[in-house]
Amino acid sequence: MAMQAGTEAHQRMLDVVEAMKHQDGALLPILHGIQDEFGYVPAESVPVIADALNLSRADVHGVITFYHDYRSAPAGRHVLKICRAEACQAMGGEAMAERAEDLLGIKFHQTAADNSVTLEPTYCLGLCACAPAAQLDGQLIGRLDEERLREIVSEVRL
């Protein structure tokens, strides 16, 4: 995405930063705002945020890389998260995780070649009483099974 000064995207970035910079501890809310807007945190946003908050670029970069949520590049059109924590393990979650890799033809932390989906692990969605659990974009999924997994795979390829 072109993010040079003067572009429309750059302006949107400035707007997000401007709207959020006045609160205490503004950095995480700003980064969430940028990621909500663009789907990732573009490298071009680092100097802008650093400037607005009076931080060094290294500080901002350090925070971005510390947290699992912030992406440095856009994800696929869909994001499928599968819980790999203990309660889901106890209900066959690991087998489901492997099936997801097989059916999608990608490994965790990868995006399909057609850009349809990114597969990510998550460690507990708070759905441990209806394990195994997953999340497709905003949608929560309990008692994930082979059938549901196949539905998801055809859904994301549409």
Partner: peptide
């Protein structure tokens, strides 16, 4: 933050 697996 409720990060513990098995808690909700």
């Amino acid at each position: 933050d409720e990060g513990d697996s098995g808690t909700f």
